[in-house]
């Protein structure tokens, strides 16, 4: 029989980094900034958490304080992805550099940054395998809710995750509510749709762009942190994060810029990503199965353009830098 509960559970675990990434990118894109640096920022978020965790674990010795074990990597991760997003904002908003070029450069930079410091740490511990393990911290990150083991399939499906899986969902819901139900959300959407109009209405376009891009980057960076601390049980290996950053950006399109759809989409993508483990395929066809999330994204793009629904379109000023026209 097909292990349905296990499959869904694994899909959720696999989908969570994508959810962090897409929630962050949706928040960013709503301000009109197309941050293609998200994959790099997620790398930076991951490695910064690892660096923080590594130094905490090596100074604290055997007994770890659970609060600090969570807090230090989390803070380091947020700081790293904040600085990376700030760099992106400075280049695109203040200096008006091309968003695509800046984003792609940031991704290249982020991956290199992660691999460089990851490699340094691996050298530092003189490990036999090319990876670095923070198993103790990961164990704390993976603390599940009570009763997870005693409630059968219900516990497996809903209670068996570390706190970051729930955090991802909560953040997505918060972002959705802020965008839809608050004045800040209205102003932010106006900035992404028509910055000249927002400017004329007295909205500080630059401030909104900086704030949403930096916050979005920090949320996305948490996806990197989750990946190391929870998904891989605290094991950092260079290039291990793979193409998840790009999947997160594809997920933004799949979700038609709605964080709530992003929640379901991320689990769907997660499921498609691991599907090859559950159906009998040869090694040669495996990459074809892994391609499925992208195929689905293209299908969504086709469907959305056929339906011509204005609500499912990207923000109108996405990718365009704004500056007041002067005569």
């Amino acid at each position: 029989m097909f292990p349905i509960v296990q499959f869904i559970q694994r899909a959720i675990l696999q989908g969570t980094p994508l959810l962090f990434g897409s929630t962050g990118e949706i928040l960013t894109e709503k301000s009109g900034n197309l941050n293609l640096g998200i994959p790099g920022i997620m790398y930076i978020g991951g490695i910064c958490g690892v660096i923080g965790g590594f130094f905490y674990q090596s100074t604290a010795g055997i007994k770890l304080n659970p609060f600090l074990a969570i807090f230090i990597p989390l803070l380091c991760s947020l700081l790293g992805s904040f600085l990376a997003s700030l760099l992106y904002c400075f280049l695109t908003v203040t200096l008006r550099a091309n968003q695509n070029v800046t984003g792609l450069a940031l991704t290249t930079f982020g991956v290199g940054f992660g691999n460089f410091f990851g490699g340094s740490l691996i050298k530092l511990v003189d490990s036999e395998v090319p990876s670095i393990a923070l198993t103790k911290i990961a164990k704390i990150y993976k603390t599940t809710l009570p009763f997870a083991d005693s409630l059968g399939w219900f516990g497996d499906l809903f209670l068996s995750y570390g706190f970051m899986v729930y955090l991802a969902v909560v953040l997505a819901i918060i972002v959705a509510l802020v965008l839809k139900k608050t004045r800040i959300g209205l102003h932010l959407r106006a900035v992404g749709e028509n910055p000249a109009t927002a400017d004329a209405a007295g909205i500080n376009v630059t401030r909104y762009k900086y704030a949403s891009t930096c916050l979005g980057g920090m949320i996305a960076g948490l996806g990197g942190l989750y990946y190391v601390m929870d998904y891989t049980n605290g094991v950092w290996s260079n290039n291990g994060f793979g193409d998840r950053g790009w999947l997160a950006i594809a997920l933004v399109i799949f979700a038609t810029w709605k964080p709530m759809i992003g929640i379901l989409g991320s689990y769907l993508f997660g499921g498609l990503y691991i599907l090859f483990n559950y159906i009998p395929v040869s090694m040669q066809t495996m990459p074809l199965i892994q391609m499925l999330p992208y195929v689905v994204t293209i299908l969504v793009l086709v469907l959305v353009s056929i339906r011509k629904s204005r609500e499912s379109q990207p923000p109108a000023a996405l990718g365009l830098n704004y500056y007041r026209e002067d005569r």
Partner: peptide
């Protein structure tokens, strides 16, 4: 030239 956000 109207200053309006189309999707609002």
């Amino acid at each position: 030239h109207f200053k309006l956000v189309d999707v609002f």
